[in-house]
Design a protein around this nucleic acid. Structure first.
Lengths: 160, 160
DNA sequence: ACTGAAAGGGCCAGAAC
DNA sequence: GTTCTGGCCCTTTCAGT
């Protein structure tokens, strides 16, 4: 995993495409080299399928933390949530009913980054209290559509 | 959204590819029709990019629930987690430190399905207690790579 | 390991049903 | 709305660096 690999994977995430040509426009890496690199990343198992899903463990972002955020903020919850999104590593932000106000999921590289993340959260304006849960093992992460039987999907989603 | 659309989207999720030819093998829908359908789904905003990411709201799975599962099970946590994965709608299962044993995220179509989901969980062998949190708004769901600046990624992931 | 150039194949418009 | 077909362009390959 060197600079070019990282630039490529980042470009794929940002552009939402794996098209060698478009990636070339973004990164200035020659098209055939892009193909060569992606092919290697596939063999290493970093890229897992044609949709360019990433194995975060192999990439080096295998640490997952779930943070409950209790907040008391001015303005809308969207504005406040946007501020939380500036914290690097945060992938999901849910605005929830019940005791907690937000539930946040973050992907990090190591324990040092966990500390950094919590510190950044505590410093955010409007954050009252955070309650962090360390994830020992990510059992599964799959698409919503994968989690259903075809029959159930047909019942629930089709409007005849 | 009719049966063919659902079959297509399901096939994309299962195969991990958007290749019209492979989708034809799986669904028996003619290649050109697949192209026609996918093109429409893109315009409707159901498919959001070249990587076939799905807008769950537009698809009809816009309800998100987070379930904390307290468990007392025989055997390994993997075995127990696999049983939870049989519940339709469950997309993420995290095995966690601290008070709760598992944190589960599920995507559902409506409130009726939330009831059904909770009921199914309570009936699972080894489940002690569940604590469900209803998500009012999903603020953001993004790739881990998107959540980082390129510079940070280069620092954290490259092994020179 | 990287690249440029050539070739093969899937993708996409258009017309027809 | 669906299907078929041909031309085109992107992807992929591979030999050479």
């Amino acid at each position: 995993m060197d600079e070019r690999d990282v630039r490529l994977l980042k470009a794929i995430a940002e552009l939402g495409t794996g098209s060698p040509e478009r990636l070339h426009d973004e990164t200035d890496i020659p098209v055939s080299t892009i193909h060569y690199r992606l092919s290697n990343l596939r063999e290493e198992g970093v890229i897992t399928n044609d949709r360019y899903d990433i194995d975060l463990e192999k990439l080096g972002l295998g640490v997952t933390v779930i943070v409950e955020v209790h907040a008391d903020y001015e303005g809308s919850y969207e504005e406040f949530a946007d501020r939380m999104l500036t914290v690097e590593g945060v992938t999901n932000v849910f605005f929830t009913m019940g005791e907690t106000d937000f539930i946040v999921i973050a992907r990090l590289s190591d324990s040092d980054m966990v500390e950094r993340l919590i510190a950044e959260f505590e410093e955010l304006e409007g954050v009252d209290r955070t309650d962090s849960t360390f994830v020992i093992a990510v059992i599964e992460e799959r698409d919503a559509l994968q989690s259903y039987e075809l029959e159930t999907l047909l019942e629930e989603l089709t409007d005849d």
